[in-house]
């Protein structure tokens, strides 16, 4: 059984049908890139995987646990799913180090010193160790996003979800974040990335998922996806973003 299984998932915002019969399975170690036009339901899809949004129909299971509305089940799933947001969402009142140790200390009940060691090693890995005692407001966007990645990794998740992690960044900083993500992909992490960085998709993705109007329109290896898109809607989308 795949690590993440979505089966016939439907979700509505009021009367708006945001996810329509979405079925997707992701194996351990797989890297999935999700793309599609604005409002197509990409964020909604990955936010359903860690229950930031609840779904109405169908089943979602992560690591063999089916997501229900039960809070213990949800918290259990979230422990194994890290998430990186477009707007970083670091905690501005905590230092970089405290941002990273918060969840290990309060959720996993790890000792402070041990959590700090772990956090420092991950901050080094995203090449930001020397900023550990600063506050998020003192860092550039690219640095903040790298901290956000380290913060998620501190929970030692099995899967990482990325929701347009580079969209809020200046061109100069996009690369420093993508480099970290490429590095992470190389380490065998299971990843679902919503992104418009097609170079990244080509380089690391095992599969590219194209969404439109709440549905998965097309899904293929990056090579086939970019070389020979099947659906009209996909071709139209690719021609727009690849010029």
């Amino acid at each position: 059984m795949a690590f993440i299984e979505l089966n016939g998932v439907n979700k509505w915002y009021g009367q708006y049908h945001a996810l329509r019969d979405v079925t997707l399975s992701v194996d351990k170690g797989e890297r999935i890139v999700i793309c599609g036009p604005s409002g197509s339901g990409k964020s909604t899809l990955i936010r359903c995987i860690n229950a930031l949004e609840g779904h109405h129909q169908g089943t979602i299971s992560v690591g063999g646990t089916a997501l229900t509305s039960d809070i213990k089940t949800v918290e259990g799933v979230r422990k194994s799913v890290g998430m990186v947001f477009q707007s970083f969402n670091l905690f501005p009142h905590l230092t970089i180090l405290e941002n990273c140790t918060l969840a290990p200390i309060h959720v996993k009940k790890i000792k402070k010193a041990q959590a700090e060691d772990l956090a420092m090693s991950l901050l080094e890995r995203v090449r930001i160790g020397e900023q550990a005692l600063k506050y998020p407001g003192q860092l550039s966007g690219g640095q903040q996003q790298r901290v956000a990645i380290a913060r998620a990794l501190c929970m030692q998740p099995d899967v990482m979800l990325f929701d347009e992690p580079t969209s809020a960044l200046d061109a100069e900083m996009v690369k420093e974040v993508l480099d970290i993500m490429v590095d992470l992909a190389g380490s065998g992490m299971t990843m679902l990335c919503v992104t418009h960085e097609m170079g990244f998709a080509r380089q690391v993705a095992d599969r590219v998922v194209f969404m439109d109007a709440g549905q998965i329109i097309e899904m293929n290896t990056p090579d086939a996806f970019f070389r020979a898109p099947q659906h009209d809607r996909t071709r139209q989308f690719l021609s727009q973003i690849l010029h």
């Binding site: 979230r78 799913v81 998430m83 929970m155």
Partner: peptide
């Protein structure tokens, strides 16, 4: 408060 603060905490599995 920005919504993202609570969401980030939720995503880290912090209890209410």
């Amino acid at each position: 408060l920005h919504n993202g603060q609570g969401e980030a905490a939720d995503a880290l599995s912090l209890s209410w």
